[in-house]
Amino acid sequence: MGVSDERRATRSATEQRSAVRERYADIATRSTNEGCCAGDGCGCGSDGLDARTRELGYDDAELETVAEGANLGLGCGNPTAIAGLEAGEAVLDLGSGAGFNCFLAAQAVGPSGRVLGVDMTPEMVEKARANAARNGSDNVEFRLGEIEHLPVADETVDVVISNCVVNLSPDKRGVFEEAYRVLRPGGRLTISDIVRTAPFPDDVLDDSDALAACVSGAETVDEVARLLAAAGFETVDVSPKGESESFIRTWDETRDLSEYIVSATIEAEKPR
């Protein structure tokens, strides 16, 4: 265990979850969409929000087909774009927030498919359920729960997606084990998340805001791959996206976070 890992290990899981829950409850209850994955300086208002969302990999059609209020400008990629969703599939979104990726997934799987979002923040679940009514998404459901203890039955899901959420968990192996449990044999995990490319300085490790903002909880590429393999996954691929440095630099006005983290596409399969 390195110095960074030792410092992070001193935080209790309860403290980590409380910090994350408090941050996203605040974002969910704001009257305007001004939350970002790692800071509030990413641009407010619909124009700034749309610009940031495009930078994450979403296109205009995706922005236009989801009712206002679901897209909070959170995340570090577009997991629905890489998941290859097919009609009739069952999709689970870990840390579903206000439901943006769930509604996009629902369009991809069609009325014969279904989408389930799980989030540990009651305010987010309430917001997502209201958004589902506005979007007319009859095949989408939102449940309150922790991604380390999913309120989902065994082997009932074809695809697990997530956007910049697993790094927030104090028990990442537990998250991947739960994802493995709920996936059907042959199912796949396809997520966008942050990985660590260099050791964090102490001021980042000691910053509770950095923990709750998708930064200091990030693991290395090798560690993410190891955790997935330990959970039972095969065909593991963790691919950093160098182009993400441009938006990561905007996450903090006092330091360049792209020196320590990068967005990555993380994919794995459950054996058939």
Score class of each variant (00 low, 15 high):
1 M>S: 13
5 D>N: 09
6 E>A: 15
8 R>N: 14
8 R>K: 14
12 S>F: 04
14 T>P: 09
16 Q>C: 08
21 R>D: 08
27 I>A: 07
27 I>E: 07
33 N>Q: 01
33 N>D: 05
35 G>V: 05
43 G>F: 13
46 S>I: 14
46 S>L: 15
50 D>C: 01
55 E>R: 14
56 L>K: 02
57 G>T: 00
58 Y>D: 00
58 Y>C: 00
59 D>S: 02
62 E>L: 06
62 E>Q: 11
67 A>Q: 00
69 G>K: 03
69 G>L: 06
71 N>S: 10
80 T>G: 07
86 E>S: 13
87 A>R: 15
88 G>Q: 04
94 L>E: 00
95 G>M: 08
107 Q>W: 02
107 Q>T: 12
109 V>Y: 02
109 V>A: 01
110 G>E: 00
114 R>Y: 07
115 V>M: 04
118 V>S: 13
123 E>K: 05
127 K>T: 08
131 N>T: 02
138 D>K: 06
138 D>Q: 10
143 R>N: 04
143 R>P: 05
149 H>W: 10
152 V>C: 10
153 A>Y: 11
155 E>T: 11
158 D>G: 02
160 V>G: 03
161 I>Q: 08
170 P>F: 06
171 D>A: 13
176 F>D: 01
176 F>H: 14
176 F>W: 05
180 Y>C: 05
180 Y>I: 05
184 R>H: 03
191 I>P: 03
193 D>A: 00
194 I>Y: 01
195 V>Y: 01
198 A>D: 13
198 A>T: 11
199 P>V: 04
200 F>M: 14
200 F>C: 12
202 D>K: 15
202 D>S: 14
202 D>T: 11
207 D>A: 12
208 S>M: 15
208 S>P: 13
213 A>H: 04
215 V>G: 04
220 T>K: 09
220 T>D: 10
220 T>C: 10
224 V>G: 08
226 R>G: 09
231 A>P: 00
233 F>C: 09
234 E>D: 13
240 P>D: 00
243 E>S: 11
243 E>Y: 12
245 E>W: 09
247 F>S: 08
254 T>A: 12
259 E>P: 05
261 I>K: 03
266 I>M: 08
